[in-house]
Amino acid sequence: MTEKKTTAAQRDGTDWQPRIVAFLCNWCSYAGADLAGMSRNDYPAAIKIVRLPCSGRVDPMFVLKSFERGADMVLVSGCHPGDCHYSSGNYHARRKLPAFRELLGFMGIDPRRFKISWVSAAEGNKWSSLVADITEEAYALGPFQEFPKCTAPEKTG
């Protein structure tokens, strides 16, 4: 773990740090992230968490919006299938989001930048290693530029 303690500066001497937007359901993954905190698991700070009631609440537009706004990586995480607090919300997510990911390439977004994961409230460790892994991958993929370039002029302001 200690080796993985990388900051942007230490890494390549530049200021660039990936922006990772995470949509977490309140009941499992958000709590799992809390548990990671309570366990003092250290992980990269590039990830920013948006709290949602359920992974089923994730509108693909949220993902698209994130990329449009310059996110380098988007993560959706919910309860494990079968454990949804709302019975079936994560099933909706599980069907809808992978299908959506198939379309990302078509829109010029590398599908590897979109992650879906199931983290339970008990999986603090899983959360921290997940964050570490995707941060690593985000670094490897580099900044996501294609999309903001073409959309930015219209969108800003």
Binding site: L52, C54, R57, F62, Y86, G89
Partner: peptide, 27 residues
């Protein structure tokens, strides 16, 4: 839970406290 909200094509459902407006602002 908001499942309906995502499904709604005309975006006619909002979950109070987790509206699209709020979430897009957060993003």
């Amino acid at each position: 839970c908001g499942a309906c909200m995502v499904t709604c094509r005309s975006k006619s459902i909002e979950v109070q406290g987790y509206t699209d407006n709020q979430l897009f602002s957060e993003i």
